[in-house]
Design a protein around this nucleic acid. Structure first.
Lengths: 213, 213, 213, 213
DNA sequence: TGCTAAGCGAGACGGTACGTCCCGTCTTAAT
DNA sequence: ATTAAGACGGGACGTACCGTCTCGCTTAGCA
């Protein structure tokens, strides 16, 4: 939200919350494309300039509203590493369900042309669930349940990306069973014998560059 | 593209290609949000109604133009499974680079309200690179390089999603080295001792539901 | 009204009349100051751009609407010169009643900064009733009922100005009786002995400039 | 100006005069339509609320400023009735030149919806020059230079209205020569033989109502 | 002398109406 | 029935200015 001056008439804080609530309501009912500042203002019982004074664009407004909705993301500590990773995926699922692909798409597109918006997006919507997941992975690592050479940031990406992907393209679901399969695949790997494959790769292309090690 | 009547003056096929080329040019220069049918028509040397006669909406037009650009996706057979999977990730990277997140976002959002558009999107842009990757994984499986119980469709998702995710959010890159680390993590897994973790999970929560097996 | 092109979709003529009628209705109900293009458009069942396409400003719109209302002004030929001049005053009264001082004031002020608007005003609202009055005076002159040296254009001014003045400032009425007194004063003059006054004026100020002759 | 309380910090009288002067300056430079309370306050070296505390509206403020400018109107006694009436017309011309049609128009329109403003207008701007003219006519009457049956209030109207009319519509000037012609027409009348015309009028319409006598 | 009430500069506030952009559609005349 | 051409009816935009309010302080008269 735009910074507020020390002097002059102070902003009515009821308008702030009313506008954010109205934004969420309109998003849910009509979607992002049909969201109009006029309509948001009308439902918040105020007018367009009052909205623009607080958020300089539709994008910033929607971002703020979604940030409010997302609140803080937290992954429970179940005491079991597999279940904890399960829980991580559910953190992403919950976060995404509250955002909706229909809103996320145009918002990300707008971020591409607006570095400030991009930063706000990362801070408000992207980082919080990732931090929760990262924390869980660190706990597992300290218990000795993860390989020493596992790139934990990459695992956060793999967990998060899958949820976004499936939600955006709607080609597959995010049921408990599907989440379980994902955890299993990530934890145990998919190769029958990784060291052998790696040796073969090296043997085949002696002079080439090998990023797998 | 809209069906054409048999009688009356036939459509000028040059207009079709000129419009698609103009669409790609405008997309690259101005982005999806600033793409105007007026501007596309102007650059194709024709007028708005001629465009609307062929594609009923901006979305359909952009989809057709991107389909033209993407063409067919193909993953080389290197003879080495690790390198083949490397190659798969690059298939996605190439496909995505040609589409651009700025276009993909709003397009997906529009798909959410238009089942026909969604189907067209899947057929033209989503499925082709996935099919190429799936084909590579099947080859690895037949060589015995993948576990019997590996869910190959899930692996396609994990590979594809990571690329989309990183391209959309721009928080991490898609260099050769990063791709290599991903392949390694997927192939060998991240757990120190998966069977033990699984046993612990079962022991801890006797009556609960266990999706990891 | 703005000129219309030969090609392209033709304007809906119903909108033209609906907008003018709505303008008159809003003028009568709310006055000129509270007349809003939005409100006019709403009552005409259309939108702002459709109005702006036809009339470039609120002033031009109001002018057109008043021109429509005023229609043609005509002074009856009663056969009696005194009654004809009576009738002339009533022409002005009728014209003015249809315009209203509340509208005339701001409109004239806007004319001061816009020569085109000023010309349009004169053509549509100012000249027609004056022409009718002038015609009556010419008829009286041809009958020999007016002095040879009477400045008929000045008489038109004196008749017209009185009505505007009283309507604008509302300090006196325009009843039949008051109109009769005006006609009498104008026709017979107010001086007891004009030639003597003139002589006195000349005698008193030998070297000065005398505009009364 | 709004009433002032006895207690509390007294108003700074310098602000009163500074605001009125600034109002006149803005009126002359930018006209009434572009006169902004903000701008007046800025030029008076103060702020909007200080202005609104003193005058409740732009209209009242402008009225006060014009009243200050107009000051008292006075018609010289030349010793010659024709010249005195000449002088009367010039009183109106001077008064009007200081007010300007661009300001008068909107002001009168606002008076139409505000009886208090209307009264203030009459007291401050309308009556003073009229009183001066009326005084001159009374002097002429006492000298026996005006007909016994001349309606002096009507003559004030005819003189005043002509000036307003010509200034408002700008279709004719107010040069000395034009003023002279007006005086002549008013004094000597325009009919060749008023009694004959009156007789004819009566003869023609026996039962009708005759306001000319 | 301290209290109180109003004025002060400053400036943002809530809100009305503006004039414009661009959309997707329609009409015309010609092919 | 399509074409090129171009204006149309209309939804939403972001802005300018209105008149009001709140702030923190100053200034006088009353107690």
């Amino acid at each position: 939200m735009t910074v507020v001056s020390r002097t002059g008439r102070p902003r009515d804080p009821h308008i702030d919350t009313a506008v954010l609530k109205a934004t969420l309501a309109v998003l849910d009912e009509s979607g992002y494309a049909r969201l109009t500042i006029d309509e948001v203002a009308r439902r918040a019982g105020t007018t367009k300039p009052a909205v623009y004074r607080r958020w300089p664009s539709r994008q910033q407004l929607v971002l703020a509203a979604l940030g409010l909705r997302l609140g803080g993301a937290r992954a429970r500590d179940t005491g079991c590493t597999l279940c904890d990773v399960d829980e991580c995926l559910r953190v992403f699922v919950r976060a995404f369900r509250r955002i909706s692909p229909e809103v996320l798409g145009p918002l990300l597109a707008d971020c591409a042309n607006d570095a400030q918006l991009q930063r706000a997006f990362m801070t408000m919507l992207f980082d919080p669930p990732r931090a929760a997941v990262r924390h869980t992975l660190d706990r597992a690592y300290e218990k000795g349940d993860l390989r020493e050479d596992a790139d934990r940031e990459l695992v956060v990406d793999l967990l998060g990306s899958l949820i976004y992907y499936r939600a955006l393209f709607r080609h597959a679901g995010t049921s408990d069973q599907e989440i379980g399969r994902t955890v299993k695949a990530l934890m145990q790997g998919i190769a029958t014998d990784y060291p052998r494959l790696l040796a073969h790769s090296r043997a085949m292309s002696a002079g080439r560059h090998h990023p797998h090690c």
